[in-house]
Structure formats: C-alpha cells, structure tokens
Amino acid sequence: MLRFIARRLLQVIPVLFVIITATFFMVRFVPGGPFTAEKAVPPEILRNLEAHYGLDQPLWRQYLNYLGRVVRGDLGPSFKYSNRSVNEIIADKLPVSLELGATALAVALVLGLGLGVLAAVRRNRWPDYLASSVGMLGICVPTFVMGPLLVLFFAIRLGWLNASGWYTLPDRILPALTLGFVYAAYIMRLTRGGMLEVLNQDYIRTARAKGASEVRIVLRHALRGGLLPVVAFLGPGIAGILTGSFVIETIFQIPGLGREFVNSAFNRDYTLVLGTVILYAGLIIGLNLVVDVVQVWLNPKLKFE
C-alpha cells in the first residue's frame, strides 16, 4: 500500500504541471484583463500598470517566471487586491471555508448515510418513502432558494439569528445546514442505491441464510459494498465542500474561498485564479487518492495496482 501511495504521490507533479500550464494560458486568452474597467484607462497609464505587474513581457517568460515562483511556494501578488498576496488571501479564507465545510459535511454524512441506509433496508415501506422524500427535497430545492427561505424564517420572522455575515458563532448555523442538506441529499440517494445493489448480492443472501442478524448484515457486509458509489462521489464532493460554495457564501456573505473561485475569474485576477486552482487541484488529487485507498479497504478482493 505504501508503494501504491508513493507512486501516486509522484504522479501529482506532472498532473499539477499540466493543470497550472493549461490554466495559465486559458486565463490569458480570455478577453478583458485585470485592468479592464468601466472607464477607459489612458493607454500610457495602462502601460505603466502592465509594466508594474510584468505583463509587458513575452507570455512564455511570464509563464516561466510564474512556474519559478510557484516552485518556491510563492503564488504571487493579487491583481485585484493590490496589497495582498495570493498566499495571504488563501491563508485568510481557507480556514473559514474549512470550518463551514467540515460542519456541513458532518451534517451531510450523518443525515445522508443514516437516511440512505434506512431507506435501503426498509425498502418500499414508509421509512423509505419518508427518507427518500427528504432526499428529493434536497435535490429539488436549490441552495439559492433554500438559503433565503431559512433566513426569512429564522432571522427575519423569528429573529433568532443574523440574516447574513460571519461574525458570531450562531452565524454558522444556517449556512452549514443549507450546504449540508444538499450534500445529504446526494449521499442519501447514492447510499440507498448502492445498498440496494449489495443487498441483492449472493453473499448477503448467503449470510441471511446462515441466520445472521439484519443489523449485522447491514453493518458488517452490506455497508462495505454499498458505500462504494458514495465514496467515489465524496472524493470530489469533499474537495468541493471544503473549498467553499459560491452560492452559499454569497447568500450568507461568508468570507470564504468559494466566492474567490468565481470572482477571481470575473476579475481576471490571473494569479488568484491560478492560486485557487492549484489549491483545489491539490485537494482533488489528494482526496481521490484517499478514495482509491478506501475503495480497496472496502473491498478486500481488490489489490493496490
């Protein structure tokens, strides 16, 4: 297993290299630049600005300079927030997204796994219908509807919480619920589907035939195989939830990283786009590695290849 992980970690370098290169050139070919503004900047001033950020050099040289800096762990200055570095922005905002994401993930896992298993075991009976309905609700009601609804009820109607912001501990409740609920719905559906698949497998029937208790069957045998799809989903899912959600962070005005992913692209903040992409890529690669390890663990027949 250690060899497997080591080999995978070695693959990270070329993968990151491709991602950085592709992103670097993609953002440069998008029309508009960091200094495109409502009012035209006189060309002489634009030249001053570009010279300041080294944008007047040939693209290949800028690219090499950037690579050189990234290798040293410096993601460069932000174009939009001109006295902050990308490292600093990420260091500021990632913890917020992690905190929100981890809480939401806890909600999602508890709710999603619990309801999913329940629905599969009590298939086509009322617990299944109830759990499935909750799951469908999370899928049918988009976050940009759910979030404001919760705010209108708990903050404005009842006056228990703030409407938006990230100032006090209770400010975390509504965003975590909203974000958690969506993921809970996905996890619930996938768990139910995966479990149903496994509960029909021959070895489960064998276990049943041998008189094993239902609880034991579910926990010991069925969950392992049944969780495979959930686990595959959770790799990118967790990366997404931990790096923050644009919609949730906008509705609740949370100073997390999620808004930066989208806004940096809108602002043509080249370095910030790259910085967030590198971070996200690292998480995706890391989590997909974890997923692959867990998949092997869930199914002892598999070996690390």
Binding site: E99, T103, V107, V110, L161, Y167, T168, L169, R172, A176
Partner: peptide, 21 residues
C-alpha cells in the same frame, strides 16, 4: 441540535460580539 453541537465542537473561531444582531 446536531448542527449546534458540531458548531460548538469547532469553536476555534474568532468571535466578534460587537457585530452581532
């Protein structure tokens, strides 16, 4: 309740009482 518990558990955050409701 679950959410509140989770939140309390992650209580490593900056608080700013002045900016509350």
């Amino acid at each position: 309740t679950l959410a509140s518990l989770a939140l309390l558990a992650s209580g490593c955050t900056k608080q700013d009482p002045a900016a509350g409701a």
